[in-house]
């Protein structure tokens, strides 16, 4: 890549800014920082970063509010980094348009992996070049052919199972809240029927995971939703 990828970090804690700047710069990213919400919004507009890392608690405004305002004009991936670890906060951030949520303290490998996922999504969305085949371990999902193969044997799925798997896989790497999944795969009116989702996820795991008790592809995000892990 000719231009270094530009990341904007909005966080009011100087220690975190210092650490992130050092680490991300070492990974060849260009980093800008803001310590306040307003400043962050202005920088995002002025510099058009490729990705925004956002803290939930800022001195002048709430991270959720920043997230909503950003989403009114940009689809730049937003990664939330927060000490708030309640599911309520996470779901609120994801529903406000955040792409991912990481709680402090976080491991840097985890952060880099999430950054990669978010950037890949951005590129796919921009180029419209979405691969119709998604691979995850031994599983290959053909979104256009409506087939799922595991170790080259076709896995037979019901229509709903396929719809659910396709929705999760096409957002690979991202946390999808229960509400998002239910209203996209079923019907917005059924966004509360988490029990459906649990049962279908269970069935899917039995069909595609090596060890359904210890899933590697369809991960549970406790209290929030699910995440599909595709091969990089």
């Amino acid at each position: 890549m000719t231009h270094p990828i530009h990341i904007l970090v909005i966080d009011d804690e100087p220690q975190i800014l210092r650490a992130l700047k050092t680490i991300l710069a070492a990974k060849q990213f260009r980093v800008s920082t803001a310590t306040r919400g307003e400043e962050g919004l202005a920088l995002a507009a002025a510099e058009q970063p490729d990705l925004i890392i956002l803290d939930m608690s800022l001195p002048d405004m709430d991270g959720i509010q920043v997230c909503r305002e950003l989403r009114t004009w940009t689809m730049t991936p937003i990664l939330i980094l927060s000490v708030r670890d309640s599911e309520k906060d996470k779901v609120a951030a994801l529903d406000a348009g955040a792409d991912d949520y990481l709680t402090k303290p976080f491991g840097i490998e985890e952060l880099l992996a999430r950054i990669r996922v978010a950037l890949r999504h951005k590129n796919q969305a921009m180029t419209g070049n979405k691969s119709s085949k998604i691979r995850a371990g031994k599983v290959e999902i053909d979104l256009t052919g409506f087939t799922v193969r595991r170790e080259n044997t076709e896995v037979s799925l019901t229509a709903t199972e396929f719809k659910l798997l396709a929705y999760l896989a096409s957002h690979a790497g991202r946390v999808l809240t229960h509400q998002m999944i239910l209203s996209n795969v079923w019907d917005p009116a059924e966004a509360n029927k988490i029990e459906y989702l649990r049962v279908y996820i269970r069935q899917l795991r039995k069909k595609i995971e090596d060890d359904p008790q210890n899933p590697k592809i369809l991960l549970t995000e406790p209290g929030i939703g699910y995440r599909f892990i595709a091969d990089e």
């Binding site: 649990r198 269970r202 210890n214 549970t220 209290g223």
Partner: peptide, 17 residues
């Protein structure tokens, strides 16, 4: 508690993992 319908097996597996 934010109570929602859950599978106990999934909870136990998550803790174990």
């Amino acid at each position: 508690p934010q109570k929602k319908p859950n599978l106990l097996a999934e909870i136990v597996e998550s803790a174990l993992s």
